[in-house]
Simulated scan of single mutants.
Amino acid sequence: MNIGIVAGGPQEALADLAIYKDKVDLWIGADLGASYLLDQNITIDIAIGDFDSIDHNTKNKIKYSASIYKEYPIEKNETDLELAIEKALTYDPDSIFLFGVTAGRLDHELANIQLLYRLLDQNTKAVIIDRQNEIAMFKPGKYQVCSNHNNQISFIPFSSTVQDLTLEGFYYPLSNETISWGSTRCISNHLIKQHGTFLFNHGILIMIKSTEEDNLS
Rank of each mutant, 00 (worst) to 15 (best):
I5V: 11
I5M: 04
V6I: 11
P10F: 04
D16S: 13
D16T: 11
A18R: 11
A18F: 00
I19N: 00
Y20P: 13
K21H: 08
D22G: 07
K23T: 02
K23C: 02
K23F: 05
D25K: 10
I28L: 12
I28A: 06
G29K: 03
G33P: 10
G33C: 07
S35V: 14
D45I: 06
I48S: 01
D50E: 11
I54D: 00
D55T: 14
H56P: 01
N57D: 08
T58G: 07
K63N: 03
Y64W: 07
S65V: 08
A66T: 15
S67C: 04
Y69G: 04
Y72L: 11
I74Y: 14
E75M: 11
E75A: 13
T79A: 02
D80F: 07
L83D: 00
K87S: 09
A88Y: 01
L89Y: 00
D92C: 12
D92T: 15
P93G: 11
P93S: 12
P93N: 10
D94W: 04
D94P: 06
F97T: 01
G100W: 02
H108D: 02
L110S: 09
I113R: 03
L115V: 12
L116Q: 06
R118G: 06
L120Y: 04
L120G: 04
T124M: 07
K125L: 08
A126G: 13
D130F: 10
E134F: 08
E134G: 10
M137T: 05
K139P: 02
P140N: 09
G141W: 02
K142Q: 08
Q144L: 12
Q144P: 09
C146N: 04
S154V: 15
S154W: 07
F155W: 08
F155V: 06
S159V: 10
Q163I: 14
Q163N: 15
Q163H: 13
L165M: 05
L167Q: 05
G169W: 06
F170T: 05
Y172D: 00
P173M: 07
L174Y: 01
I179M: 05
I179L: 02
S180A: 15
W181K: 15
T184C: 13
C186I: 09
I187Q: 06
S188Y: 00
L191R: 09
Q194Y: 03
Q194N: 11
H195V: 12
T197A: 00
F198T: 05
N201M: 02
G203V: 15
L205N: 07
I206C: 04
K209Q: 12
S210P: 12
T211Y: 01
T211S: 08
E213I: 14
E213G: 04
N215K: 12
L216Y: 03
L216P: 13
S217H: 10
